[in-house]
Nucleic acid binder design. Structure first.
Lengths: 338, 338
DNA sequence: ACATTTTGTTAAAACTTTTTCTAAAAAAAA
DNA sequence: TTTTTTTTAGAAAAAGTTTTAACAAAATGT
């Protein structure tokens, strides 16, 4: 049998409201009364029923976290960050694995409507944006986005400075006198990928290297695409001496193709990749990696969420975190000017 | 403004209890009354407040899922299975990332006490067992274990037949006339690992190959350990021509060492590994893999949990699922007898 | 036609906590 | 000492749903 406030009130011989105040560390309870109550609370390890509390306070203490794909290496770290902040502030996190399925996403967002959660953090977006408009999720419903934008809806977002990340990686290659860099990317229409391309172009411009479309391939972002891209590049008259791939799948394929061709990294080819992962560090420990502060990404999103819940509007609607470069496992200081 | 049962009752002109019955598809409501109610419910997209419902029914509709480490490749799939069943049955899953931290685990288990969750599924166990005894989590508290055992506590468990998995892999190697198999393992004291060793021994016995301790190495289960193990084996007078590693980290290290030595798989060495993963399939697509029904593992655990919640005791306390062999990406029929 | 069962519905109680209002007691100020 | 203020505590209402008991109306059986 779990005790209730009422039980404790009876035991101590006070009113329930007094026990409630004592348990919640609120003023209005005398010292000896408080002590007597807390003694019993401790003895029986009493914890207030969260359902009742939720009903009374119109809060649940639960956040929904919508994730499209748990196997993406970035998510466990992001989740960790969110959980950390949320738990520290007394919130629990419900995991909602959407698998890029609109229906699932839709049904998860209903949790908000049912007052089951105090807010929803949506990672990886894409589907969400247009969708949220159609649902009744407006006004007082609390949503924070990770890695996607919905400015028209005035939803807060936490992002990485993708273009800066690719800029740093390209710059690093250029500084090693690799002037022809093969860029292997995912879908251009994706906001994140388009930002990355822009970073590449900025770096070339800065180092006065002419941009040449032939050195950029757009792919589906899979392992095979990275592999094929290398072979394609090697058929060029003037093949690149360095490569930059924008996700771990592409990079893995690329590296395997390079190794398969009997070449060595970084002796024969310099390779940089966007995004850290165990896969990458195992396959090619010497790679230059653009590292994102993923845990911080999650922490920031959770902080904004909790601020929103508490009625404080965030200082900035869109928060951009800076990536940094890890050159062969050593962290490189971010240079300001070349 | 979100509507309540009361609002709808007023609109239709019936009592709240009638609306409640209609919404929950319960008997005792006339056909036209039911229809009138459901019309309004649909029109305003009414959803009952889960806090109030939880309070009244003494249920939350939420399950806690304790996971030690999200980056382990098995967990996303297990989680998927749990979520699937849970959601189908109207439950949400709270993700509790314990990071093998006793304190975190402890605090998460308090969720049960606070009536925040209807039950907890604990994956990977280890810490939990002794611990649960000390907490007040006995009697009516609902716990299901995944990949660990706590028979003394009579907690239901869902397991994989680890020994059978390793048996199948070893058998496959033996059938290819690899009679010396280098077995690279994690910590023997771990129940799971000890089971795997037993499977290896069973296979040798079956094929009348003498067990030799020199061909078995116990390690910390990391990448480097797999790498070093290969070098160690190659220093033997009669090195193995085949290897069996019991997790993906060991396997990755092993494979890299083999490749690094200029050897080929499966030409020079046959390699089998326990547990599928993207890493493995990318690095060495030709490996023989012991594949676990991970999603089913999650589904089964969730099913047992929900049965328990509904007051049905599970048919068997310990449920063991069978792994199967994937020989170079082709699923091999499980043979009954050699 | 009467007793009995079934059906449809309501009113009230329950679930536990928080909050607001109010009364009493204690402390401080006049 | 009296008045005012502050502190402490209780009683009651509110949160939104489900559940129970109660009751009337309708249907069935005799």
């Amino acid at each position: 049998m779990t005790l209730t406030l009422k039980d404790i009130a009876e035991m101590v011989g006070v009113a329930e409201s007094t026990v409630s105040r004592a348990v919640n560390n609120k003023p209005g309870v005398g010292d000896e009364t408080r002590q007597k109550i807390m003694e019993i609370v401790k003895k029986y390890n009493f914890r207030p029923n969260q359902m009742a509390r939720g009903l009374a306070k119109k809060e649940t203490g639960i956040l929904a976290l919508l994730i499209p794909d748990l196997t993406e290496p970035a998510y466990p770290e992001i989740i960790k960050g969110i959980e950390k902040v949320a738990n520290d502030e007394g919130y629990q996190v419900i995991l909602c694995h959407t698998e890029n399925d609109l229906e699932k996403e839709k049904s998860y967002l209903q949790l908000l409507q049912e007052n089951r959660v105090d807010g929803a953090i949506i990672a990886g977006g894409g589907l969400a944006d247009q969708h949220i408009l159609n649902t009744s999720l407006r006004g007082n419903n609390l949503i924070v986005l990770i890695n996607s934008l919905a400015e028209e809806l005035l939803l807060p977002s936490v992002l990485i400075n993708y273009s800066r990340g690719v800029y740093l990686a390209a710059e690093h290659l250029l500084q090693q006198n690799v002037d022809k860099i093969g860029l292997i990317m995912g879908d251009f229409r994706d906001y994140v990928e388009s930002e990355k391309l822009s970073g590449y172009q900025q770096a070339l411009k800065k180092y006065e290297v002419e941009y040449d479309n032939d050195y950029v391939v757009e792919t589906d972002g899979k392992y095979e695409d990275g592999y094929k891209a290398f072979l394609q590049f090697m058929n060029m008259d003037d093949p690149p001496r360095g490569f930059l791939a924008t996700n771990e799948y592409l990079t893995t394929g690329l590296v395997e193709a390079i190794k398969g061709g009997g070449y060595f990294i970084p002796g024969d080819f310099k390779v940089a990749t966007y995004g850290e992962s165990r896969l990458i560090s195992l396959i090619a420990p010497g790679l230059t990696v653009v590292s994102e502060p993923r845990q911080q990404l999650g922490e920031t999103a959770a902080e904004i969420m909790i601020d929103l819940i508490r009625g404080e509007s965030p200082s900035e609607l869109i928060k951009v975190l800076e990536p940094f470069l890890k050159v062969e496992n050593k962290i490189k200081e971010e240079t300001n000017n070349g």
